[in-house]
Design a protein around this nucleic acid. Structure first.
Length: 491
RNA sequence: CGGGGUGUAGCGCAGUCCGGUUAGCGCGCGUCGUUCGGGACGACGAGGUCGCAGGUUCAAAUCCUGCCACCCCGACCA
């Protein structure tokens, strides 16, 4: 096979880039830092969207849509919030263009200056909470459980396709509650939704936990996250859920009358996942032969490649292929019959392999005679010949087996790359030579975390939700600590 | 925003140091034929404002100035 792309070993980030580009997921655009998501990549995102959207609806949420533009003044109503985002906001200052007086092209019309500049949303807490003020008067108006699917812009210095782009797609849930307990419960509930999605659909094991103060969302009281481990040993935050307390309610004056007739501030949460998940998916499962997709998120779950010489053979083979396709589609399996005559079978094999299609069926005259089909699975690259009888059930089980195998592989990778460090030397050594998640004691201070970050580039990924208490000494300062936290270098 | 690199056909590159016929090569693309169970082969063919704007020169892909874009490494971030 002609290798025209990088392997993980050679250059991990080029390998990643090659997969994104050559599997037709996305490409960079004419606009700095912004990507074009191509149909195949977008189809993966749509699969993610539809699974998540259902989970949101099942937990009582509704979709809505808020403006992409936020009045500049909104952003600085919550002090921490503005601090967190001010450095990466795109700002709209004018609303009109005109012909360049010199005759060439168009220029901004200086007379059409906005009275108040508009910020392109980096996230929507402010515009949403300004709106919620109008929606909420009584405890009867609560809770509000709203999600929006949207694009946001964060003017990043350095971008990477899917992992970090100036504009990205995401969903952001914004809920309003009467009590602290209810808001905290919501925060955890949505974290659990994300965990289930990551593990069941993306086949990526994640660690649920709480962010340290350093890594907390600007404006949140507590930020929870799910952290996944990529094949190069770096961590990737795959989802966040914030308990916002009453910060935004106070900033935007959102109050309600309780049953007892008291005026109270509303409690808030927000939670989101983004197109970054596509990057996570790639880096968690793919191999040196290209993309590997878990069946549940694969736009094409099964591809059928007919093998033939003459036109007559083509017809015969395709007839069988269509029959199998129909059977699979009746089970809601997404099948593509690639009956293009413009490409040869071998070419198609490589094409679908690189694009991560979980199962490939090849049917030729030999199979028609023997009542068999050739099955190739993408995760293990195994090829087997199946009897055609009961093929639909077999494929259905195979897809489940692939989904499960990918999860198990990712899980054992994580287990093999999760270590404990008890000395500073060990800690640095593991980071440089192995990577992965490192459980280590930490004295709980921001200063120590920052020092560790400066010296090693590792950050605290989270304090795991199911963490067990354990007396120890901080890996860096030697001060007493009562639990280990997870450190890693991260995306 | 700092350091480094690269812009030449759809993609990947050579040519640039040392200016001089008609700017090449591989892949891809088109037509025809033979092929077709892991990226086929042959023949013929199409395709270029050499990133953009100035300048030097008889002559610029090549030298000079400015700008732009992208990539890599840092600081920041989901």
């Amino acid at each position: 096979m002609a290798k025209d792309f990088y392997t993980r070993e050679e250059n991990y980030s080029k390998w990643y880039n090659d997969i994104v580009l050559k599997a037709d997921l996305a490409e960079s655009s004419a606009v700095r830092g912004c990507m074009v998501i191509k149909p195949y990549g977008y189809a993966i995102w749509e699969k993610m969207q539809s699974a998540l959207d259902k989970m949101f609806k099942d937990t009582g949420h509704s979709n809505a849509y808020f403006p992409i533009f936020i009045p500049k003044s909104f952003l600085n109503k919550e002090a921490d919030h503005v601090e967190g985002f001010a450095k990466e906001c795109a700002v709209v200052t004018h609303y009109r263009l005109k012909k360049d007086p010199s005759g060439k092209g168009i220029v901004v019309d200086d007379t059409a200056c906005l009275e108040e500049e508009l910020v392109v949303r980096p996230t929507s807490e402010t515009i949403i909470w300004d709106t919620y003020r109008k929606w909420i008067q009584s405890y009867r108006d609560l809770p509000i459980l709203v999600n929006q699917w949207a694009n946001v812009v964060r003017w990043e210095m350095r971008t990477r396709l899917f992992l970090r782009t100036a504009e990205f797609l995401w969903q952001e849930g914004h809920t309003a509650h009467a009590t602290k307990e209810e808001a905290v419960e919501e925060t955890i509930k949505m974290l659990d939704v994300y965990t289930e999605f990551a593990e069941k659909h993306m086949a990526i094991p994640v660690i649920k936990g709480l962010k340290s103060e350093n890594e907390r969302f600007a404006g949140a009281l507590e930020t929870y996250c799910i952290e996944a481990l990529m094949q190069d040993g770096k961590a990737l935050q795959a989802g966040t859920s914030h308990f916002l307390g009453q910060n935004f309610a106070k900033a935007f004056d959102v109050k309600y009358s309780s049953k007892e007739g008291k005026i109270e501030y509303v409690w808030a949460t927000s939670w989101g996942v983004s197109t970054r998940l596509v990057g996570a998916l790639i880096m968690a499962h793919s191999d040196d032969n290209g993309l590997v997709l878990p069946p549940k998120l694969a736009p094409i779950q099964v591809v059928i490649v007919p093998i033939y010489k003459s036109r007559q053979e083509f017809e015969q083979v395709c007839e069988k292929a269509r029959e199998i396709k129909k059977g699979l589609e009746d089970r809601n399996i997404c099948v593509k019959l690639d009956d293009r005559d413009t490409h040869k079978p071998g070419w198609k094999f490589n094409e679908y392999e690189f694009k991560g299609v979980p199962v490939r069926i090849a049917i030729g005259m030999r199979d028609l005679k023997n009542k068999t089909v050739e099955i190739a699975r993408r995760d293990t690259l195994e090829k087997t010949t199946f009897q055609e009888a009961d093929i639909v059930n077999k494929i259905e089980h195979l897809l489940e087996a692939i989904q499960d195998n990918l999860y198990q592989k990712a899980l054992s990778f994580r287990e093999n790359n999760t270590t404990k460090a008890d000395t500073w030397e060990d800690f640095k050594d593991i980071l440089d030579n192995q990577g992965g998640f490192i459980y280590a004691h930490w004295d709980g201070t921001v200063e120590t975390e920052q020092k560790i970050k400066e010296e090693t580039k590792a950050t605290i990924r989270c304090i795991p939700s199911d963490n067990k208490k354990e007396k120890g000494e901080c890996i860096y300062s030697g001060k007493p600590s009562d639990q280990r936290v997870i450190f890693a270098r991260a995306y």
